[in-house]
């Protein structure tokens, strides 16, 4: 395989400046089956994918400013798949013309040495949880319905308890910066899930 000529090699690889557009909501356990049923009808015709993931949230504290936060996720169902490392930027919620929360997003697939490597980088685990649920797609829209579980003993994903009596519902799209029209499509899709679930632009800061 021939390497690309020197002049066209970017200084860094990867996809620069991807944004995540996000709407969130929740559904009570009693209504979960109806929601899944509705999603099966609305979304692309594929078998819904279910997942069980373990997510660890790491913080790197500097001398000043906010700590730097990274999320490391691994599949509990497919242990051999790569880990998923995710950086999320500051959410932008102020713009009324945009119907979704927007934040910068960097997704990296990594080898299984990730926790050890983050520790060496001076990151420390802040909290962890287990998420189990289903993923649906409609074009570039992604709908994740997941139930969150508290990990009772650090690192032991067998020993968990549900965090609440409801499931988290997230509708998201990844797009290059500036493509605000996707938020229109998201709003239209969210309308179709009412009244089972009300997907909203939620400012995480208001809940801290």
């Amino acid at each position: 395989m021939e390497a690309p000529p020197v002049t066209v090699m970017p200084v860094t690889g990867g996809t620069v400046n991807m944004m995540e557009y996000l709407l969130q909501g929740s559904v009570l356990d009693q209504a979960l089956d109806s929601l899944l049923h509705r999603l099966r009808g609305l979304c692309d015709n594929m078998e819904p994918e279910s997942f069980a993931d373990h997510e660890m949230v790491y913080l790197l504290k500097g001398q000043q400013g906010n700590p730097f936060l990274l999320r490391a996720r691994r599949s509990l169902a497919h242990l051999a798949t790569p880990w998923h490392l995710r950086y999320l930027g500051q959410p932008e919620v102020g713009d009324k013309s945009r119907h979704a929360l927007v934040r910068n997003c960097v997704d990296v697939a990594t080898s299984h040495s990730l926790p050890e490597f983050l520790n060496e980088m001076s990151f420390r685990m802040d909290h962890e949880f287990v998420a189990k649920g289903h993923i649906f797609r409609k074009g570039s829209l992604k709908v994740v319905v997941s139930k969150l579980f508290r990990v009772l003993v650090q690192g032991n994903t067998e020993n968990t308890e549900p965090l609440s009596l409801s499931s988290l519902v997230e509708l998201s799209v990844l797009a290059p910066a500036g493509q605000d029209t996707v938020s229109e499509d998201m709003r239209a899709f969210a309308e179709q899930l009412k009244p089972l679930v009300h997907l909203e632009k939620i400012d995480p800061k208001r809940h801290m």
Partner: peptide
């Protein structure tokens, strides 16, 4: 330790 990652690691 060493970590193998995709090219988005550079962006990170």
């Amino acid at each position: 330790p060493c970590l193998t990652a995709d090219a988005n690691f550079d962006v990170l």
